[in-house]
Design a protein around this nucleic acid. Structure first.
Lengths: 132, 132
DNA sequence: GGGGCCGGTTCCCTTGAAGTAACCGGCCCT
DNA sequence: AGGGCCGGTTACTTCAAGGGAACCGGCCCC
């Protein structure tokens, strides 16, 4: 088995992840999927890029993903304990629509950010249309 | 302007909309987008397929979508008042990734529903791996 | 025996999204 | 004068997701 790159701590900065108007599963699922994209990861390994996730929430999320058939949980009977999470085929197939979402977000980034910056009181279009 | 089909009251049954593991914007945004796909709609018209939405939430959602540049709100100065909501080009471009999501959901429907039905206590895979 | 690593669990609290119910103003019609 | 249509608004409540802090058991090492 060839070496797998460690996950970078700033994998999810306030960019693609933040303010993305989409959501896959719950708050952390999409990020976890990206973490598992390159290969199986263990619990503590996942905590690195997911700075702000508490172990409770991470467990909950992983359990939900397991229940939905997106990931597998493999316990190795070693010491200290080792648990690995990996994408299933179903989970992996989900990366495809996710990529489309990311592509859309990347393509319309400026437009999205711009829309929110417009002068607060931008009036709704109003038309006198009596004789329409 | 040619006639536009009225929205069916059972447009969103417990199928594509319900239990879909994706979310576009907030709870109702994706459904609203589908409602606007064929052309502009007015407030009361939107309420028909969105059975359970309260006027408050519908207003909130539409305002948020307007703020994000997904829809326009056009007030016609008539009586009784008429307000029409329509997709912007940006909003319309969002339908494309949404279609991918829907296609994925349709393709993996059985698999998704199946995963949750498995015997509750399905054990995690466990491997003795001392000599790995 | 004290501390650390690992993969969690438990309890409690906060937050924000969403739901419920009631009401509103303008104008038309009867 | 009363009622209805339209597109909302306002105030109150509910509920689940998420976050924080603390603790746990097993085994190893010092």
């Amino acid at each position: 088995m060839n070496r797998i790159e460690p996950l970078s701590a700033d994998m999810f900065d306030a960019d693609c992840a933040h303010r993305m108007p989409f959501r896959i599963g719950d708050k952390w699922s999409a990020m976890i999927m990206r973490c598992l994209e390159a290969g199986p990861r263990r619990f503590t390994e996942l905590k690195v890029p997911l700075h702000r996730v508490s172990p409770k929430v991470l467990t909950e999320t992983l359990r939900a993903m397991e229940r939905d058939g997106w990931v597998t949980r493999t316990v190795y009977d070693e010491n200290p304990p080792r648990v690995e999470y990996a994408l299933t085929a179903l989970g992996r197939s989900l990366l495809d629509p996710m990529d489309h979402l990311c592509a859309w977000t990347r393509a319309h980034r400026e437009e999205i950010l711009g829309a929110r910056e417009e002068p607060a009181g931008t009036p709704s279009v109003l038309r006198g249309a009596r004789g329409e």
